[in-house]
């Protein structure tokens, strides 16, 4: 029947999370049609990660982020292609579009998948803010799945995807986009491979220089704990934890964060956790792979110095 993938783009490139969604769909073992919204100079990447076909949507109404219109276009593409499953990334775009698709198509939706469907048809997803997983079965013939960023191996298929224009008619939106504030060209925190995060142990916003320096040397994104964001030492979008963003990078370095259960909930699916804290009793050490008991203001400069001597280009 075939699988359709929602491919979002930014800065003239396919979003990394969308490439993961393509690879997820290809690993499900069916033919994959990537429906591309926006321009992408790196269109060949879609084939590399498993797309058999790319439908490039052209309709000026879809230039803005209009979840209901995007859902409408995806439904029409699914119909045209005879696809019964739609895969999206569990990023801010996919989270807005997927539930609309689910309701309009009467298709069961699993959000935040972290593994491929099993032979029995169950899909594993994170629940209780990262403290557990649920294995969920979709009972409907049509299925919608959103894939948690950085949760599956982005396997390469090295296909050459045929590209076709998809001139789709959609209705009008009552939502008007007035202004866009793109905060940085950096990857969103949820897609970062490495994250350096700090908490109250840093004592004040003026001390964040060493955190940013270490992150820069390692090629990592910066994050923070909830108290730090609540006190406006750092912007809200950097807050990771149960009520902030949940992340699962390959490497999470927590500096001066004690490791309250609410913070752990947002980060404990990281592959490797490093904890740096001057309190040897900090609960975070129990969840850490590597730990350093010591003063952040002495330890972090040593790490920066060491990182400068290492090669991170490969």
């Amino acid at each position: 029947m075939g699988i359709l993938v929602y491919v979002s783009t930014s800065n003239n490139q396919i979003n990394k999370s969308a490439l993961e969604a393509i690879s997820y769909a290809a690993q499900c073992g069916d033919s994959v049609t990537a429906v591309q919204f926006g321009e992408a100079a790196d269109q060949a990447e879609a084939g590399k990660f498993g797309a058999d076909k790319i439908l490039k949507v052209s309709n000026a109404k879809l230039n803005d982020f209009q979840p209901n219109l995007i859902a409408e276009a995806l439904m029409k593409a699914a119909e045209a292609e005879g696809a019964d499953t739609i895969v999206l990334s569990h990023d801010l775009s996919g989270k807005a579009v997927a539930p609309i698709l689910s309701a309009k198509m009467h298709a069961g939706l699993v959000t935040g998948a972290v593994a491929l469907p099993t032979a029995e048809g169950t899909i594993k997803k994170g629940v209780f803010s990262g403290k557990a997983y649920a294995n969920v079965k979709i009972n409907t013939a049509k299925k919608i799945i959103t894939v948690t960023p950085n949760s599956i191996d982005k396997k390469e298929f090295n296909k050459t995807a045929a590209v076709a224009d998809f001139a789709v008619e959609v209705g009008d939106s009552r939502l008007k986009v007035v202004e866009q504030k793109i905060e940085s060209a950096d990857l969103p925190l949820t897609e970062a491979i490495k994250v350096v995060s700090a908490g109250r142990g840093l004592k004040g916003p003026e001390n964040w220089g060493i955190i940013e320096d270490l992150a820069k040397e390692l090629g990592a994104a910066t994050a923070c704990s909830r108290p730090v964001s609540d006190m406006d030492w750092r912007p809200h979008h950097e807050h990771v934890g149960q009520t902030g963003v949940a992340i699962r990078p390959n490497l999470y370095i927590a500096i001066g964060i004690s490791g309250a259960i609410q913070h752990l909930a947002g980060v404990n699916q990281s592959k490797v956790i490093v904890v740096i804290n001057n309190d040897p009793e900090a609960p975070f050490f129990k969840s850490a792979d590597y730990g350093i008991v010591g003063d952040a203001f002495e330890v972090v400069p040593k790490l920066i110095e060491k990182a400068k001597s290492m090669d991170f280009t490969s």
Partner: peptide, 20 residues
């Protein structure tokens, strides 16, 4: 119901922390 939870599981326990 369009979906059902078949089972739950807890994440694998972490090994010991290695100190530097």
């Amino acid at each position: 119901n369009s979906t059902e939870v078949v089972s739950y599981e807890l994440p694998a326990a972490k090994g010991d922390c290695k100190y530097v």
